[in-house]
């Protein structure tokens, strides 16, 4: 096992590996690369087609949310440092062409990891002037909302896009599956797993902690302008949060 900073070490490591490539193997690698490239392009086209389903729906689909964010950051030096559980759209639709575009997940999927871990990554990105973005599950944020105060206090620029499905949703799905497996019916699976009555207004929460807050965004047409305002705040050196009311997955 080699432990180290991927961003610092991978470029040099890649070059070192390239120098060792046998010229006889080069064509085989290129042929394989072409196949993989074609498969990737086909997957992206399929994902774009899938993303159209429910495009104008409210609650907003995660595909729409992710597409709207990417449309506004794709020409920046962006860095995605956090993600909500099972939100697969960035890796389907976005072009991760540099090491700092994605810094990985916790590995353990612990609730309450994403918000502070993303802020740590944003702090690391700050000196590089990168536009740091994190998709933020609402349940995860419920564990550690004080992260927002830390972001404001230390003037750490980050855009939190809250994937607000009003639930500890992975747990909600898990309880449905387990209750059914045990023959108990699923009608009580929402108890303790949904975050409604009252709904949380995360934009107001953010503002209370000194963070620029937008939302709740319910109509997908309102998402782009809210993101524009929030990104302007991030570019001025502030943290910002956009609360997007989303479909579960």
């Amino acid at each position: 096992m080699i432990a180290g900073d991927g961003e610092a070490s991978l470029p040099a490591l890649i070059e070192a590996v390239k120098r060792l490539v046998d010229p006889a193997r080069q064509s085989a690698y290129e042929a394989r690369g072409k196949k993989l490239g074609a498969a990737r392009l086909a997957m992206v086209e399929r994902a774009k087609s899938d993303a159209t389903i429910g495009w104008d729906a409210s609650p907003i689909t995660t595909a729409r949310m992710c597409a709207e964010v990417y449309a506004q950051i794709r020409n920046e030096d962006w860095s995605l440092v956090g993600n909500a559980i099972r939100n697969t759209w960035p890796h389907k639709l976005w072009n991760f062409d540099q090491a700092h575009r994605w810094n990985g997940g916790s590995g353990g999927a612990g609730v309450g990891y994403n918000a502070p871990a993303s802020l740590g990554a944003a702090l690391a990105n700050k000196r590089h002037g990168r536009l740091t973005v994190a998709f933020q599950g609402d349940g995860d944020l419920m564990m550690v909302p004080n992260t927002l105060w830390t972001a404001a206090h230390h003037r750490i620029p980050i855009l939190y896009v809250v994937h607000n499905n009003r639930a500890y949703h992975q747990e909600y799905m898990y309880l449905q599956a387990m209750a059914a497996r045990l023959g108990r019916g699923i009608e009580n699976a929402h108890i303790g797993t949904t975050i409604t009555d009252p709904n949380v207004d995360y934009a107001t929460v953010a503002r209370g902690f000194g963070v620029h807050g937008e939302g709740p965004v319910v109509d997908p047409k309102d998402l782009a302008p809210a993101l524009t305002r929030a990104i302007a705040a991030v570019k001025s050196g502030q943290p910002a949060l956009v609360d997007v009311v989303t479909d579960p997955r």
């Binding site: 429910g54 099972r86 799905m173 599956a177």
Partner: peptide, 21 residues
């Protein structure tokens, strides 16, 4: 609860693995 995994628009999603569209 069908929408919980498969989405209100039937767009699918993911739990431990993909939830089909």
């Amino acid at each position: 609860g069908c929408f919980v995994c498969h989405g209100r628009s039937g767009q699918g999603g993911a739990y431990n693995g993909p939830s089909p569209l």
